[in-house]
Design a protein around this nucleic acid. Structure first.
Length: 782
DNA sequence: GAGAGGACGCTACG
DNA sequence: CGTAGCGTCC
């Protein structure tokens, strides 16, 4: 879709209207705008309330922008395509907003070789694993550990020293007075002060508590002793303490606060302690200060910190941390100079947040206290109960989720450098384009309206222009909640030819790109010139991984191409992106689960386009006859079936009526009978058991599966199917295996950057791409 | 009157 | 279906 420069019209003609914001109910005014489309020339204007000026003088000609809609190119940048193909290994460079993300002034930074490679432009000359050897321990944690982690009696809450009001409130006054002194002091002092002083207060409270040993005050011999003690402890429980006075055990904050220290509980009494009285006679509490020190002081302070934290993490003893990923990432960031991500990526830290989420992914706990209340209500819960509860989940936890923690931490600590200035230029460019589109939309509508407002667009389309009257035979999609006429692009394109749709809707794609992917990313990098997503292991009920700030998984696949060349060509190309793409993993899984012969047949032709083949089978035509619309429909329908979307959702996506959508679904299911059988099998099973299991043994209970209300029950049924198919599985397994492989073999200077559901994005040094490709074998998915 | 926060709509990804 | 994220409206 090209956004060709539009015909210009008198600049400034509407500028007077911009500043007068009038309430919709109060006033209507006529604006006789020239009408370029075949719509009635004059309409009552839609009075507006605007955030910004709608129109401004456009005294310059905006550069031409084109949004390309073409499939990604499948070409390895420097290695021969042949070899890549032979290895069953495909790479795609994730081309993306190339004007903006380019070279940066870091010493090792190198721009990517291809014009299309926009995003990752640095290579880490990692301080290699030889520098500070950390032993990566592959140990089998005993079943006892499962009980401890899944239903812990001596969990990190026992070392909670947070001076927070809510904590005290929960415990009640009697606990407050009997509780630790540190808690008391902190609550009095910390609450109303600034963050800095809160931190000081907390730290002071921690270090002045007689039970807490401040590691900073120990002499070298005492430190050695402490280290030895830590080494002999049966378990170590770690909790990060933040500068704003909170700890890791508090509920998630919007922005991750700065770390000021680490509290370490060395546990020797694993039995017989209650949460109210956590510290056994043989247990000790140590506080490690973790603050960035000036360069001149680093030499000496690092020594002691390494002694404790790094050595603790490298040992084979039981280490527990609620939100262990944060701990590992902090460690990585803290020792950036001395520590390679490869050393951390193999650490095993038990995480009650992850195990608790596995037990009930639909209702994750918001903070440690929540988790504790949920799973450890009775202090003397018998271990047998815990074991029974986690039956079947322990393998999933220890073989997969546990490995994932450190991998995600390593991924999160990777910095993707971005040329801020270029991104800002792109933002300006898009802003100009948006204004231009806005003017066009106003002309097409014959009035001024806020193009980003759905209600206003709805008024224009359906009340002023009455476009729905022109297509009585078609049923128009409605919004989900209020059953109003939908203003989505797909819905509006039924009304009128696409070009007018795009004009009137003001090209939502451009808006999305500007707001989310340009300005959004800019807002993610205040005070820094890089981005790094935060990855969440436990926020998706189906077991997928999610990303935030920015959401790496939702970056557009199609590159935004701006014809004006702005990027800087690099001289020495050293890094490229490599993507492993497990073609339609979920569809393959559906084929596997249902054993549908037709569906399986499709995957025997790996080179063919799956959706074209599907469309040809479904419509009963040859592959050559499949139109792009057929293919798109097939794809959407497949996904709606795979993901369990209802007919309303499908109608919204396809831009057809709900009746038509459900006819499409039915005809698809008629063609692939086994798929339907699989769906019914899953639903029946869920009715019987009340829960469903995914292929990895993940479990989701669906309490509404037998609800009397039809709608609610149907939703639960769709969720059941969706869970089984969507459950993170193969990719997750490969994800861990390969990450571990990359670390242990160290054959390549490569690094995992992102997980995009069924793709893994690696950064590989240019000279090693062929080797990297060769090392990867065809993942055996179907 | 300003701003916070929830509801809603749309779009990106799979 | 189910994530994140942006925008408007109340």
């Amino acid at each position: 879709m090209a956004l060709a420069p539009t015909s210009t019209y008198a600049a400034g003609q509407d500028s007077s209207s911009s500043s007068t914001a009038i309430k919709a109910s109060k006033k209507m005014e006529n604006l006789n705008l020239p009408n370029s489309l075949n719509h009635p020339p004059r309409f009552l204007s839609f009075p507006l309330k605007r955030k910004h000026e709608i129109l401004e003088h456009q005294n310059d000609h905006p550069p031409k922008i084109s949004l390309t809609r073409h499939p990604p190119k499948w070409e390895p940048p420097h290695c021969s395509q042949k070899q890549a193909g032979e290895n069953g290994f495909s790479k795609v460079k994730r081309a993306w907003s190339e004007t903006a993300i380019s070279e940066l002034p870091e010493p090792q930074a190198k721009v990517s070789p291809s014009h299309q490679t926009g995003i990752v432009v640095e290579v880490h000359k990692e301080t290699c694993a030889t520098k500070k050897p950390l032993q990566i321990c592959q140990r089998k944690v005993e079943e006892k550990c499962c009980e401890s982690t899944l239903a812990s009696k001596w969990t990190p809450s026992s070392v909670t020293c947070k001076p927070l009001k809510h904590k005290r409130a929960k415990l009640g006054p009697e606990h407050g007075t009997n509780g630790p002194k540190i808690s008391h002091e902190g609550a009095n002092g910390g609450g109303e002060l600034q963050n800095q002083s809160k931190a000081g207060c907390l730290t002071a409270a921690l270090t002045s508590d007689p039970r807490v040993t401040d590691c900073g005050k120990l002499n070298p011999e005492e430190k050695m002793l402490m280290l030895e003690k830590a080494g002999h402890a049966k378990a170590l429980v770690l909790t990060l303490v933040y500068r704003d006075g909170t700890t890791q055990l508090d509920s998630e904050q919007k922005l991750a606060p700065a770390v000021c220290g680490l509290l370490m509980l060395m546990k020797n009494d694993l039995d017989g302690r209650t949460p109210e009285d956590p510290l056994g006679q043989n247990d000790s509490l140590v506080y490690l200060k973790l603050e960035h020190t000036p360069a001149w002081a680093q030499q000496c302070t690092h020594q002691s910190r390494e002694d404790m934290l790094l050595q603790v993490l490298s040992r084979s003893q039981l280490v527990v941390c609620y939100k262990a990923k944060d701990l590992l990432r902090t460690t990585l960031q803290f020792y950036r100079q001395d520590l390679s991500w490869k050393q951390v990526a193999g650490c095993h830290v038990q995480d009650p947040q992850v195990s608790g989420w596995l037990l009930d992914p639909a209702n994750p706990s918001s903070c440690y206290q929540d988790l504790f209340n949920k799973h450890c209500k009775r202090p003397h819960t018998t271990p047998a109960q815990g074991t029974k509860k986690c039956q079947g989940l322990w393998e999933l936890y220890s073989d997969m989720e546990l490995n994932m923690i450190s991998v995600l931490a390593a991924m999160e600590s990777h910095r993707i450098h971005v040329d801020k200035e270029a991104l800002k230029r792109t933002s300006d460019l898009l802003g100009t384009k948006m204004k231009q589109l806005e003017q066009e939309a106003h002309r097409a509508a014959g009035q001024i309206f806020l193009v980003t407002s759905n209600p206003q667009l709805r008024t224009v389309l359906f009340e002023k222009l009455c476009l729905q009257e022109r297509c009585e035979n078609k049923k128009l999609p409605k919004t989900i909640n209020k059953q109003q006429q939908s203003t989505s692009e797909a819905a509006v394109s039924i009304l009128i030819p696409l070009v007018y749709t795009t004009t009137l809707c003001c090209n939502p794609q451009v808006h999305k790109i500007k707001s989310t992917f340009v300005d959004g990313i800019l807002s993610c990098m205040t005070n820094k010139n890089y981005i790094s997503s935060t990855w969440y292991q436990t926020s998706v009920v189906t077991g997928r991984i999610s990303a935030k700030h920015p959401n790496f998984q939702a970056l557009p696949r199609q590159p935004l191409q701006i014809t004006k060349k702005q990027y800087i060509q690099g001289k020495n190309e050293t890094v490229i992106n490599v993507e492993l793409y497990f073609c339609q993993v979920e569809l393959r899984l559906l084929a596997h689960l249902s054993s549908d012969p037709e569906l399986l047949r499709i995957f025997t032709h790996p080179q063919a386009d799956v959706f074209t083949m599907l469309a040809s089978q479904w419509k009963g035509v040859t592959e050559a006859e499949v139109t792009s619309e057929d293919r798109e429909h097939a794809k959407r329908i497949v996904y709606s079936v795979v993901y369990g979307a209802g007919r309303e959702r499908l109608s919204g996506i396809l831009g057809v009526s709900a009746e038509q959508a459900s006819r499409f679904q039915d005809s698809f299911l008629q063609t692939y009978r086994e798929v339907q059988a699989f769906i019914q099998r899953t639903i029946q099973q869920c009715h019987k058991q009340g829960y469903v299991l995914s292929i990895m043994g993940r479990r989701r209970t669906l309490p509404n599966i037998n609800a009397p209300d039809w709608g609610i029950r149907m939703q639960a049924e769709r969720q059941a199917v969706n869970f089984v198919v969507q459950g993170r599985m193969t990719v997750g397994a490969v994800f861990c295996r390969n990450s571990v492989w990359c670390i242990s073999e160290c054959v390549c200077n490569c690094r995992l950057i992102a997980q995009l559901h069924d793709e893994l994005l690696y950064e590989v040094e240019d000279s090693q791409v062929e080797q990297f490709a060769g090392e990867f074998t065809t993942p055996n998915i179907s």
